[in-house]
Design a protein around this nucleic acid. Structure first.
Lengths: 192, 192
DNA sequence: GATTCGATCCTAGCACCGCTAGACAATCGA
DNA sequence: TCGATTGTCTAGCGGTGCTAGGATCGAATC
């Protein structure tokens, strides 16, 4: 029994190593640089080992996304907890979101740009994803306004942040005005 | 002279064929399916011919993007022209934008998701891109509100639409509520 | 303690990718 | 008619994601 348990532990450890290495490589050099060969070399195993843990590259992206979702939820809750007042919390949330996206571009891509094979906005959506959305909802529900579903409002607010984050990072929006855009967004969208 | 002119014409014609074929293939099967081999086969030339017109695949994406920007500007102006009242025009603009994105996903990707090697938000930004932004600005300037730069407001509105468009297409937002999101967006962001 | 047997891992290879060097043919100007 | 230039192609480079099949190793059995 104990031998099997040890093997299982080692296997789980190796899986964590794969995900961590993929994430690290992606943050350092972008997801294009995360090839199965390079990844295999870094974890000091051969390529096929990756396929004994994940169906393919897509699933590895998905694993990074799930890890990222948990961290993102933590980051957003920490940002809002440190802020005062309704308006302050909403602004802090928006900044926290964009900050996370800027600091963890590869994770953000895994979550919201790339195909990680994860189901979103469904019943079988993984818990970390639901929780990240919940973290947004918690703060935004109180500024949705009368007669507006908090969920719908959160989706819209999220979409706006997502647009800012992605367009800014791909240099389609000049980065220097981000703060003003955030303030305008909060001012207009939120009912304070 | 006339011989050279004919050759030049034929060359230009072939370039149009490449761009049109790339776009068609991308809309049919996605950009991943647009490989230089397949593209070459479809235009009935060998692969290297592509490289006598474009530096590489990236530039082909850029060419599709420019074509798409022109069409998008036309589509948005048409949408607003057919609408009545300030609010009607803004709503029509938003719908027109999302409609274009949904109907031309590959072109939309070339414009706003993929790397086509084009400079955005700069002095040397190609005219079609500037004009597409101008088409947004024309309608949105009048609802920016007092003391808010129309350009900044347009960027934010655009980012929100972009977020809705991309998150919806990748199934991260349920598509059935798009119309309600648009109405909420217009209601809140625009100063009517 | 030797031997079987199953799990584990690696080598080698598939078909495909973007891109390019160099051979070849067609066309042009002298 | 001949050389030079232009245009196009074949073939190939190093890379990709992924997998088949063989080697190896350790645990369990005799």
């Amino acid at each position: 029994m104990s031998v099997q348990e040890r093997k299982q532990r080692e296997r789980a450890e190796r899986e964590r190593l794969i995900v961590a290495t993929a994430r690290e490589l992606a943050e350092q050099q972008g997801w294009d640089a995360v090839t199965t060969r390079r990844l295999a070399e870094r974890i000091e195993y051969s390529q096929p080992v990756l396929y004994s843990h994940f169906r393919g590259k897509r699933e590895i992206i998905g694993a990074v996304a799930l890890q990222g979702a948990t961290e993102m939820a933590v980051a957003m809750r920490a940002a809002t907890a440190a802020a005062d007042g309704t308006r302050g919390r909403v602004t802090a949330l928006a900044r926290g979101y964009l900050d996370f996206a800027e600091r963890n571009p590869a994770v953000y891509d895994a979550l919201f740009q790339l195909d990680g094979g994860l189901p979103y906005a469904q019943e079988d959506t993984p818990e970390p994803l639901k929780d990240a959305f919940a973290a947004l909802l918690e703060t935004l529900a109180e500024v949705a306004g009368d007669g507006v579903e908090p969920g719908l409002f959160t989706e819209l607010f999220w979409a706006s942040l997502h647009g800012i984050a992605t367009l800014t990072r791909t240099r389609r929006l000049p980065p220097e005005d981000t703060e003003r855009r955030v303030e305008l967004l909060v001012d207009r969208l939120a009912v304070l």
